[in-house]
């Protein structure tokens, strides 16, 4: 069934009229089906006919990654972002975006792994505890070092990490001293919050102390709707 260039977008809206939109997606030809020749269609499926649906989600749960590999990859990510932006705020936003897509996937994966006893979080404190323990432990193998509520503002919370792993090998030059590459982790946290319907902004700030020169505080600022809902729920 030809539908011209609406086939190219995965965001085509469904239509209730069966003559325009026939039922299930299998009757919709795969994207680029009519445009590609038969040779390139071989590339869509692996020769062993295995797809991502055959892999078990717990397969990589116990596996570890070398810190050096991650450090090199993260360094390249920072350099890649740096070439495409002008300004520190933009760079932090780009890193935040990278972390965001990771956080969306991590949220679903972690809750799936909890199994039947999985509970969705509906309260602010609940979701923050979830991030401090479960999310942090699954990425960094240790819970975050502290969670505080701001005394001045109702909608601000602070998550403290004494030594963010992503920053361990990075020395920010003096002219960019406001940059904190933990904006990447802030993106992960923001995505987890957004997914659970607690929209807000998460930013990373470095607060070096004598004993902990790499201490970072993630400032979590929730939207007003979240605070209203929280007070309604009692």
């Amino acid at each position: 069934m030809q539908r011209g260039d609406s086939l190219n977008s995965p965001f085509v809206p469904f239509s209730p009229n069966p003559s325009i939109q026939q039922g299930t997606p299998t009757s919709t030809p795969p994207l680029k089906h009519t445009l590609s020749s038969s040779t390139s269609s071989n590339l869509r499926y692996s020769s062993s006919r295995k797809s991502i649906y055959d892999r078990h989600l717990n397969r990589s749960q116990r596996s570890e990654l070398s810190k050096a590999s991650f450090a090199f990859l993260f360094g390249e990510m920072v350099q890649y972002a740096q070439k495409r932006v002008n300004g520190i705020a933009d760079l932090e936003k780009k890193l935040n975006l990278h972390g965001y897509s990771i956080g969306q996937r991590l949220l679903e994966l972690l809750l799936w792994r909890e199994g039947r006893s999985a509970k969705r979080e509906t309260r602010i404190l609940g979701i923050l505890q979830f991030i401090t323990t479960t999310v942090y432990r699954s990425i960094f193998n240790k819970p975050a070092d502290g969670l505080e509520k701001s005394r001045d503002n109702e909608d601000e919370y602070m998550l403290i990490d004494n030594d963010p792993m992503v920053n361990s090998y990075i020395s920010v030059p003096k002219e960019m001293s406001q940059l904190n590459c933990a904006a990447f982790v802030a993106g992960i946290i923001e995505a987890v919050l957004d997914g659970c319907l607690f929209p807000g902004r998460v930013t990373a700030h470095s607060v070096p102390t004598e004993q902990l020169p790499a201490k970072t505080v993630f400032l979590i600022k929730f939207d007003e709707s979240v605070i209203e809902r929280e007070s309604v729920l009692g």
């Binding site: 050096a68 993260f74 360094g75 090998y169 990075i170 020395s171 030059p173």
Partner: peptide, 10 residues
Amino acid sequence: ADYVMKNPFY
């Protein structure tokens, strides 16, 4: 190798 090579700003 750690603090110089893994630093994206170097």
